[in-house]
Nucleic acid binder design. Structure first.
Lengths: 223, 223
DNA sequence: CAACCTCCCTAGCACTGTTAGAGGCAATCT
DNA sequence: AGATTGCCTCTAACAGTGCTAGGGAGGTTG
């Protein structure tokens, strides 16, 4: 009341690249991929949409920033702890999947892009370094990194399509009903295992594949 | 000249669901994902865009049809030939990848969707049947199918982002330049193996992962 | 004081997916 | 023969999109 114009709106909450990214991620998480637009984002930030373009070159660039931000939330593998490289790689895979699943709408932006923002590069560097320091040569280190990350990302993206990730149980149930109602004469084997297929065991499946890939790397060690 | 209105334009080349899908796929293959729109597609078909909506409920439904059409081009695994199930599964994986890579723009539609159109279901049925008839129980059969297909699709999608698939060498070269110009002090291990990473050996990497997954299935056999 | 830089604004372009509703055209019914 | 029906394409339009041009307020610097 004393008329201090200080805190009122002195340090005007000016827009900011980081602030935009934060709000965009919130909006995606809350309202989903289809509801996202630059204009809506502007409303969220109490700003008119063209202002965004001062801080961000384009929607596409913003999307790049978003996925790198999400990837940045994935804990990096410990540089050199007691654990074997197998275990560290396995943990990384599960962590990365978990991070992606916690931002399903943002993860949907990933296909078509490469996870090569600053955070993505740092992750790549760490994984490759881990493998090299565990005795793999350059070729196998790059194989390991690429196959592993491609697998994790690819799996997570499709899990999300399945309805996993958000409060998206509705989607999952819908898929279940769809698969359950298929004609058994046309898809006999599929229908026979339908229960297994849509069981909420995607995590098991993911880890099974992840372990197989790591075992594949192990095998090249002895060769 | 004899005034037969028959072949002139009697059986007017009316629009058709299949025709629309065909043209859409052509348009995607030729001009890429970003250039696609219902209006452009209409131009391609020498029709006004609202006409499309008589045959197709929405762009989204059309996209579903497109990916199922692409998947339909993948040869199904032989029902029961001399080959081992490992080899048949491996062939399927490579075939499916090849089909996806040959329609990169359409493949970009896949994330966010499930490959459960008629063709996708038939593929699932065959793969699951193959595994069951090779001695796997329902649970492992569904594991095998899902992990394998998720892997193939995920890998292909990201390969396409890398620039593979189309006459997209430009994109690939750009990625190469980007990775080559990274600061070695910040990403030492990455830069060290950069040559390996962007080498056009994605096929090797893919097959390495594919084989690892199949080996993982083999291991559960003896257990 | 003037010049600048930063940053948000209004206005608007070219485009999108999609719908409402009119109308042409062939086959069918009366 | 004429009327009716259903199929299919059209024109017109709506609400929304990403993005740009260019103006102008407010602080910082010469």
């Amino acid at each position: 009341m004393a008329g201090f114009p200080r805190e009122e709106h002195a340090a005007a909450p000016r827009l900011d690249r980081a602030e935009i990214v934060r709000a965009a991620l919130d909006l995606l998480d809350r309202d989903g991929f289809d509801a996202f637009s630059m204009r809506r984002l502007a409303v969220e930030l109490e700003v008119k949409s063209p202002s965004l373009y001062w801080h961000v070159r384009s929607k596409d660039e913003l999307f790049d920033l978003l996925i790198d931000t999400v990837i940045g939330k994935c804990p990096l593998p410990a540089a050199d702890e007691g654990d074997s490289w197998q275990r560290r790689l396995s943990s990384l895979g599960m962590d990365l999947r978990q991070v992606l699943l916690s931002h399903p709408a943002a993860t949907r932006l990933l296909p078509g892009r490469l996870p090569f923002g600053p955070n993505g590069l740092r992750l790549a560097d760490r994984v490759i370094g881990l493998l090299r320091r565990s005795g793999f040569d350059d070729r196998m280190a790059s194989y390991g990194y690429l196959v592993l990350v491609f697998y994790v990302i690819g799996f997570a993206v499709q899990e999300i399509a399945f309805g996993k990730g958000a409060a998206n149980g509705a989607r999952l149930a819908e898929v279940g009903r769809y698969l359950g109602g298929l004609p058994a004469d046309r898809y006999p084997d599929l229908v026979a295992v339908a229960d297994e297929l849509l069981a909420p065991r995607l995590t098991d499946r993911f880890e099974f594949g992840l372990q197989s890939l790591i075992d594949g790397l192990v095998k090249t060690e002895s060769a």
